[in-house]
Protein backbone atom coordinates (compact mmCIF):
# COMPACT_ATOMS: atom_id res chain seq x y z
CA UNK A 1 0.00 0.00 0.00
CA UNK A 2 1.41 3.40 -0.89
CA UNK A 3 1.40 6.54 1.29
CA UNK A 4 1.05 4.48 4.43
CA UNK A 5 0.97 6.97 7.32
CA UNK A 6 0.02 4.80 10.26
CA UNK A 7 0.97 1.16 10.48
CA UNK A 8 -0.43 -0.91 13.36
CA UNK A 9 1.11 -4.35 13.78
CA UNK A 10 -0.24 -7.16 15.97
CA UNK A 11 -1.52 -4.84 18.71
CA UNK A 12 -2.52 -6.51 21.95
CA UNK A 13 -4.08 -4.55 24.82
CA UNK A 14 -5.28 -5.97 28.12
CA UNK A 15 -7.27 -4.37 30.95
CA UNK A 16 -7.31 -6.27 34.22
CA UNK A 17 -6.36 -9.46 32.42
CA UNK A 18 -9.06 -9.07 29.80
CA UNK A 19 -8.04 -8.76 26.16
CA UNK A 20 -9.40 -5.61 24.59
CA UNK A 21 -7.33 -5.83 21.41
CA UNK A 22 -6.40 -9.22 20.09
CA UNK A 23 -3.52 -8.91 17.62
CA UNK A 24 -4.91 -6.08 15.54
CA UNK A 25 -3.02 -5.12 12.37
CA UNK A 26 -4.00 -2.25 10.10
CA UNK A 27 -2.54 0.29 7.74
CA UNK A 28 -3.94 3.78 7.30
CA UNK A 29 -3.04 5.93 4.32
CA UNK A 30 -2.31 9.63 4.27
CA UNK A 31 -5.35 11.92 3.73
CA UNK A 32 -7.75 9.03 4.19
CA UNK A 33 -11.06 9.17 6.06
CA UNK A 34 -11.11 5.92 8.01
CA UNK A 35 -13.89 4.86 10.36
CA UNK A 36 -13.72 2.24 13.09
CA UNK A 37 -17.22 0.84 13.42
CA UNK A 38 -18.44 -1.62 16.00
CA UNK A 39 -20.52 -2.13 19.13
CA UNK A 40 -19.27 -0.82 22.48
CA UNK A 41 -16.42 -2.87 23.86
CA UNK A 42 -15.18 -3.91 20.42
CA UNK A 43 -11.83 -2.13 20.90
CA UNK A 44 -12.39 0.77 18.50
CA UNK A 45 -11.79 3.52 21.05
CA UNK A 46 -8.80 1.61 22.42
CA UNK A 47 -7.25 1.55 18.95
CA UNK A 48 -7.84 5.28 18.64
CA UNK A 49 -6.25 5.93 22.02
CA UNK A 50 -3.20 3.92 21.02
CA UNK A 51 -2.76 6.14 17.98
CA UNK A 52 -3.30 9.20 20.19
CA UNK A 53 -0.65 7.98 22.63
CA UNK A 54 -2.89 7.55 25.68
CA UNK A 55 -2.47 3.78 25.82
CA UNK A 56 0.60 1.70 25.21
CA UNK A 57 -0.01 -1.77 23.75
CA UNK A 58 1.15 -4.82 25.72
CA UNK A 59 2.71 -6.14 22.53
CA UNK A 60 2.80 -5.13 18.90
CA UNK A 61 4.08 -1.97 17.25
CA UNK A 62 2.77 1.40 16.19
CA UNK A 63 4.55 3.06 13.26
CA UNK A 64 3.87 6.65 12.28
CA UNK A 65 5.40 7.83 9.03
CA UNK A 66 7.85 4.92 9.22
CA UNK A 67 8.97 5.60 12.82
CA UNK A 68 8.08 3.36 15.74
CA UNK A 69 6.20 5.50 18.29
CA UNK A 70 4.90 2.92 20.80
CA UNK A 71 5.84 4.91 23.89
CA UNK A 72 5.94 8.41 22.46
CA UNK A 73 3.74 10.54 24.77
CA UNK A 74 0.66 12.27 23.28
CA UNK A 75 2.17 15.74 23.49
CA UNK A 76 4.97 14.75 21.11
CA UNK A 77 2.72 13.32 18.40
CA UNK A 78 1.54 15.07 15.24
CA UNK A 79 -1.94 13.90 16.08
CA UNK A 80 -4.88 15.69 17.70
CA UNK A 81 -8.10 14.39 19.14
CA UNK A 82 -11.74 15.43 19.32
CA UNK A 83 -12.89 13.76 22.50
CA UNK A 84 -16.16 12.20 23.47
CA UNK A 85 -18.27 14.96 25.02
CA UNK A 86 -15.56 17.33 23.74
CA UNK A 87 -13.50 17.78 26.96
CA UNK A 88 -13.43 21.55 26.50
CA UNK A 89 -11.71 23.49 29.27
CA UNK A 90 -14.55 25.11 31.22
CA UNK A 91 -12.32 27.75 32.80
CA UNK A 92 -11.35 29.16 29.39
CA UNK A 93 -13.48 30.97 26.80
CA UNK A 94 -13.87 29.94 23.16
CA UNK A 95 -10.81 31.84 21.95
CA UNK A 96 -8.61 30.56 24.79
CA UNK A 97 -9.75 27.00 24.21
CA UNK A 98 -8.84 27.12 20.53
CA UNK A 99 -5.58 28.97 21.20
CA UNK A 100 -4.55 26.51 23.93
CA UNK A 101 -2.32 24.23 21.82
CA UNK A 102 -0.63 27.10 20.00
CA UNK A 103 0.09 28.93 23.27
CA UNK A 104 1.61 25.80 24.77
CA UNK A 105 3.95 25.76 21.78
CA UNK A 106 4.77 29.41 22.57
CA UNK A 107 3.98 30.70 19.10
CA UNK A 108 4.05 34.50 18.73
CA UNK A 109 0.82 36.14 19.83
CA UNK A 110 0.14 37.52 16.35
CA UNK A 111 0.32 34.14 14.67
CA UNK A 112 -1.82 32.56 17.39
CA UNK A 113 -4.43 35.21 16.82
CA UNK A 114 -4.60 34.89 13.05
CA UNK A 115 -4.69 31.08 13.12
CA UNK A 116 -7.39 30.96 15.78
CA UNK A 117 -9.53 33.46 13.88
CA UNK A 118 -9.05 31.53 10.67
CA UNK A 119 -10.13 28.33 12.35
CA UNK A 120 -13.16 29.93 14.04
CA UNK A 121 -14.11 31.27 10.62
CA UNK A 122 -13.98 27.77 9.17
CA UNK A 123 -16.23 26.27 11.85
CA UNK A 124 -18.55 29.28 11.73
CA UNK A 125 -17.88 30.62 15.23
CA UNK A 126 -16.51 34.09 14.46
CA UNK A 127 -17.88 36.51 17.01
CA UNK A 128 -18.09 33.88 19.75
CA UNK A 129 -14.48 34.40 20.95
CA UNK A 130 -15.29 35.77 24.39
CA UNK A 131 -18.10 33.34 25.19
CA UNK A 132 -17.63 30.85 27.99
CA UNK A 133 -17.82 27.33 26.61
CA UNK A 134 -20.54 26.36 29.09
CA UNK A 135 -22.85 28.88 27.43
CA UNK A 136 -22.62 27.25 24.01
CA UNK A 137 -25.04 24.76 22.53
CA UNK A 138 -23.95 21.17 21.97
CA UNK A 139 -23.30 21.79 18.29
CA UNK A 140 -21.23 24.89 19.01
CA UNK A 141 -19.19 23.09 21.64
CA UNK A 142 -18.57 20.40 19.08
CA UNK A 143 -17.21 22.98 16.63
CA UNK A 144 -14.94 24.47 19.29
CA UNK A 145 -13.55 21.02 19.99
CA UNK A 146 -12.85 20.48 16.30
CA UNK A 147 -11.29 23.92 15.89
CA UNK A 148 -9.17 23.42 19.00
CA UNK A 149 -7.73 20.24 17.50
CA UNK A 150 -7.40 21.36 13.86
CA UNK A 151 -5.73 24.68 14.66
CA UNK A 152 -2.58 22.74 15.51
CA UNK A 153 -2.45 21.47 11.90
CA UNK A 154 -2.06 17.83 12.88
CA UNK A 155 -1.24 15.15 10.29
CA UNK A 156 -4.09 13.09 11.69
CA UNK A 157 -7.30 14.05 13.47
CA UNK A 158 -8.77 11.44 15.77
CA UNK A 159 -12.50 11.68 16.44
CA UNK A 160 -13.99 9.59 19.24
CA UNK A 161 -17.78 9.35 18.74
CA UNK A 162 -17.88 13.13 18.33
CA UNK A 163 -21.51 13.35 17.27
CA UNK A 164 -22.93 11.02 19.90
CA UNK A 165 -24.34 13.81 22.09
CA UNK A 166 -26.06 15.72 19.27
CA UNK A 167 -29.62 15.38 18.05
CA UNK A 168 -30.38 13.73 14.71
CA UNK A 169 -30.68 16.86 12.58
CA UNK A 170 -27.49 18.40 13.92
CA UNK A 171 -25.72 15.08 13.47
CA UNK A 172 -26.53 15.01 9.76
CA UNK A 173 -25.33 18.59 9.40
CA UNK A 174 -22.07 17.88 11.18
CA UNK A 175 -21.40 14.82 9.03
CA UNK A 176 -21.29 17.00 5.95
CA UNK A 177 -19.24 19.60 7.80
CA UNK A 178 -16.68 17.08 8.96
CA UNK A 179 -16.23 15.74 5.45
CA UNK A 180 -15.71 19.31 4.26
CA UNK A 181 -13.10 20.03 6.95
CA UNK A 182 -11.21 16.90 5.98
CA UNK A 183 -11.09 17.84 2.32
CA UNK A 184 -10.20 21.45 3.12
CA UNK A 185 -7.39 20.56 5.54
CA UNK A 186 -6.17 17.61 3.42
CA UNK A 187 -5.30 15.46 6.40
CA UNK A 188 -6.16 12.00 7.66
CA UNK A 189 -9.33 11.62 9.76
CA UNK A 190 -9.73 8.55 11.93
CA UNK A 191 -13.28 8.33 13.18
CA UNK A 192 -14.79 6.05 15.80
CA UNK A 193 -18.50 5.35 15.94
CA UNK A 194 -21.09 2.70 16.62
CA UNK A 195 -23.49 4.34 14.17
CA UNK A 196 -23.32 2.49 10.85
CA UNK A 197 -25.05 5.24 8.94
CA UNK A 198 -22.40 7.77 10.04
CA UNK A 199 -19.67 5.36 9.02
CA UNK A 200 -21.14 4.72 5.58
CA UNK A 201 -21.81 8.42 4.76
CA UNK A 202 -18.44 9.92 5.56
CA UNK A 203 -15.72 7.34 5.19
CA UNK A 204 -13.36 6.36 2.43
CA UNK A 205 -12.82 3.13 4.25
CA UNK A 206 -14.73 1.41 7.05
CA UNK A 207 -13.19 -1.03 9.51
CA UNK A 208 -15.78 -3.16 11.26
CA UNK A 209 -14.56 -4.41 14.65
CA UNK A 210 -15.76 -6.89 17.18
CA UNK A 211 -14.20 -8.29 20.37
CA UNK A 212 -10.86 -6.66 19.67
CA UNK A 213 -10.53 -8.00 16.16
CA UNK A 214 -11.17 -6.62 12.71
CA UNK A 215 -14.12 -8.33 11.05
CA UNK A 216 -13.97 -6.63 7.71
CA UNK A 217 -12.41 -3.60 6.09
CA UNK A 218 -13.33 -1.95 2.83
CA UNK A 219 -15.19 0.87 1.17
CA UNK A 220 -18.69 1.59 2.49
CA UNK A 221 -20.11 -0.01 -0.68
CA UNK A 222 -18.09 -3.22 -0.20
CA UNK A 223 -19.07 -3.50 3.42
CA UNK A 224 -22.74 -2.94 2.73
CA UNK A 225 -23.05 -5.09 -0.36
CA UNK A 226 -20.64 -7.85 0.46
CA UNK A 227 -20.63 -8.34 4.23
CA UNK A 228 -18.14 -11.02 5.07
CA UNK A 229 -20.17 -12.66 7.83
CA UNK A 230 -23.51 -12.50 9.56
CA UNK A 231 -22.16 -10.16 12.25
CA UNK A 232 -21.15 -7.52 9.74
CA UNK A 233 -24.34 -8.01 7.79
CA UNK A 234 -26.40 -7.60 10.94
CA UNK A 235 -24.44 -4.63 12.17
CA UNK A 236 -24.44 -2.79 8.84
CA UNK A 237 -28.03 -2.11 7.90
CA UNK A 238 -30.91 -4.47 8.51
CA UNK A 239 -30.79 -8.09 7.43
CA UNK A 240 -32.63 -11.36 7.44
CA UNK A 241 -30.14 -13.97 8.60
CA UNK A 242 -31.28 -17.57 7.95
CA UNK A 243 -29.64 -20.95 8.45
CA UNK A 244 -28.86 -22.58 5.14
CA UNK A 245 -27.03 -25.44 3.45
CA UNK A 246 -24.77 -24.98 0.44
CA UNK A 247 -25.75 -27.95 -1.71
CA UNK A 248 -23.04 -27.31 -4.24
CA UNK A 249 -21.60 -24.32 -6.10
CA UNK A 250 -24.33 -21.86 -7.14
CA UNK A 251 -27.12 -23.73 -5.30
CA UNK A 252 -28.20 -23.10 -1.72
CA UNK A 253 -31.12 -24.40 0.31
CA UNK A 254 -32.76 -22.36 3.05
CA UNK A 255 -36.22 -22.22 4.56
CA UNK A 256 -36.78 -25.58 2.95
CA UNK A 257 -36.47 -24.18 -0.58
CA UNK A 258 -33.63 -24.36 -3.11
CA UNK A 259 -32.31 -21.10 -4.54
CA UNK A 260 -29.85 -20.33 -7.28
CA UNK A 261 -27.06 -18.08 -6.10
CA UNK A 262 -23.78 -16.57 -7.32
CA UNK A 263 -21.50 -18.01 -4.62
CA UNK A 264 -19.13 -20.91 -5.01
CA UNK A 265 -16.25 -22.60 -3.27
CA UNK A 266 -18.03 -23.45 -0.02
CA UNK A 267 -17.91 -27.21 -0.58
CA UNK A 268 -20.89 -29.52 -0.81
CA UNK A 269 -23.48 -29.84 1.97
CA UNK A 270 -21.78 -27.06 3.93
CA UNK A 271 -23.82 -25.33 6.70
CA UNK A 272 -23.87 -21.58 6.05
CA UNK A 273 -25.53 -18.33 7.09
CA UNK A 274 -27.70 -16.81 4.42
CA UNK A 275 -28.18 -13.03 4.49
CA UNK A 276 -30.93 -11.26 2.60
CA UNK A 277 -31.41 -7.49 2.87
CA UNK A 278 -35.04 -6.44 3.54
CA UNK A 279 -35.09 -4.27 0.42
CA UNK A 280 -33.95 -7.23 -1.73
CA UNK A 281 -37.07 -9.31 -1.07
CA UNK A 282 -39.72 -8.78 -3.76
CA UNK A 283 -43.39 -9.20 -2.90
CA UNK A 284 -45.39 -11.18 -5.49
CA UNK A 285 -48.80 -12.86 -5.59
CA UNK A 286 -49.16 -15.92 -3.38
CA UNK A 287 -47.94 -19.05 -5.18
CA UNK A 288 -45.84 -17.08 -7.64
CA UNK A 289 -42.76 -16.75 -5.48
CA UNK A 290 -40.57 -19.44 -3.99
CA UNK A 291 -41.69 -18.46 -0.51
CA UNK A 292 -45.21 -17.96 0.81
CA UNK A 293 -46.18 -16.48 4.12
CA UNK A 294 -48.66 -14.51 6.26
CA UNK A 295 -48.24 -10.77 6.83
CA UNK A 296 -47.82 -10.20 10.59
CA UNK A 297 -47.45 -6.43 10.78
CA UNK A 298 -47.02 -3.38 8.60
CA UNK A 299 -45.34 -0.20 9.81
CA UNK A 300 -44.99 2.96 7.74
CA UNK A 301 -41.37 4.18 7.98
CA UNK A 302 -41.58 7.32 5.89
CA UNK A 303 -39.87 6.22 2.69
CA UNK A 304 -41.04 2.62 2.76
CA UNK A 305 -43.22 0.15 4.63
CA UNK A 306 -41.60 -2.33 6.96
CA UNK A 307 -43.51 -5.57 6.58
CA UNK A 308 -42.98 -8.56 8.86
CA UNK A 309 -43.89 -11.88 7.29
CA UNK A 310 -44.14 -15.30 8.92
CA UNK A 311 -42.97 -17.86 6.32
CA UNK A 312 -41.32 -21.28 6.45
CA UNK A 313 -40.56 -21.03 10.14
CA UNK A 314 -38.81 -17.65 9.97
CA UNK A 315 -39.88 -14.03 10.54
CA UNK A 316 -38.86 -12.08 7.45
CA UNK A 317 -38.41 -8.34 7.34
CA UNK A 318 -39.29 -6.73 4.02
CA UNK A 319 -38.95 -3.11 2.93
CA UNK A 320 -41.51 -2.30 0.29
CA UNK A 321 -43.03 0.86 -1.16
CA UNK A 322 -46.47 -0.78 -1.16
CA UNK A 323 -48.37 -1.71 1.98
CA UNK A 324 -49.91 -5.17 2.49
CA UNK A 325 -52.99 -6.30 4.38
CA UNK A 326 -52.16 -7.76 7.80
CA UNK A 327 -53.17 -11.43 7.81
CA UNK A 328 -53.08 -11.77 4.03
CA UNK A 329 -50.97 -14.36 2.20
CA UNK A 330 -48.15 -13.09 -0.01
CA UNK A 331 -45.42 -14.63 -2.12
CA UNK A 332 -41.77 -13.57 -1.97
CA UNK A 333 -38.80 -13.93 -4.32
CA UNK A 334 -35.11 -13.09 -4.08
CA UNK A 335 -32.79 -12.61 -7.04
CA UNK A 336 -29.70 -14.87 -7.04
CA UNK A 337 -27.38 -11.83 -6.83
CA UNK A 338 -29.12 -10.59 -3.66
CA UNK A 339 -28.52 -13.79 -1.73
CA UNK A 340 -25.34 -13.53 0.34
CA UNK A 341 -23.77 -16.72 1.61
CA UNK A 342 -21.45 -16.61 4.62
CA UNK A 343 -19.49 -19.09 6.64
CA UNK A 344 -21.48 -20.03 9.71
CA UNK A 345 -20.17 -18.15 12.73
CA UNK A 346 -19.05 -20.36 15.57
CA UNK A 347 -21.35 -20.55 18.53
CA UNK A 348 -20.76 -17.88 21.12
CA UNK A 349 -18.81 -15.68 18.80
Amino acid sequence: MKDVLIDLRDLVVEYDGERVLNGLSLQIRDKEFVTFLGPSGCGKTTTLRIIGGFIEPVSGDVFFDGKRINSLPPYKRAVNTVFQRYALFPHLNVYENVAFGLKVKRLPEKEVHSRVEEMLEMVGLRGYERRGVAQLSGGQQQRVAIARALVNTPRVLLLDEPLGALDLKLRKEMQTELKRYQQQMEITFIYVTHDQEEALTMSDRVIVMRDGEIQQEGTPQDIYNEPINAFVADFIGESNIIDGVMLHDFLVEFAGVRFDCVDKGFGEMQLVDVVVRPEDIRVVSPGEGKLTGVVESVIFKGVHYEIMVDAHGYHWKIHSTLPQEVGSFIGMTVAPGDIQIMHRMEAGE
Partner: peptide, 18 residues
Amino acid sequence: MDSYAYDAALDLGCNPWQ
Protein backbone atom coordinates in the same frame (compact mmCIF):
# COMPACT_ATOMS: atom_id res chain seq x y z
CA MET B 1 -14.16 17.23 35.90
CA ASP B 2 -14.45 15.84 32.38
CA SER B 3 -12.37 12.68 32.57
CA TYR B 4 -10.81 13.53 29.23
CA ALA B 5 -9.75 17.09 30.11
CA TYR B 6 -6.29 15.92 31.15
CA ASP B 7 -5.94 13.80 28.01
CA ALA B 8 -7.06 16.77 25.93
CA ALA B 9 -4.29 18.91 27.40
CA LEU B 10 -1.67 16.26 26.61
CA ASP B 11 -3.16 15.95 23.15
CA LEU B 12 -2.72 19.68 22.58
CA GLY B 13 0.96 19.55 23.45
CA CYS B 14 1.16 19.92 27.24
CA ASN B 15 3.56 17.73 29.14
CA PRO B 16 2.06 16.18 32.28
CA TRP B 17 3.15 19.10 34.49
CA GLN B 18 1.75 21.71 32.14
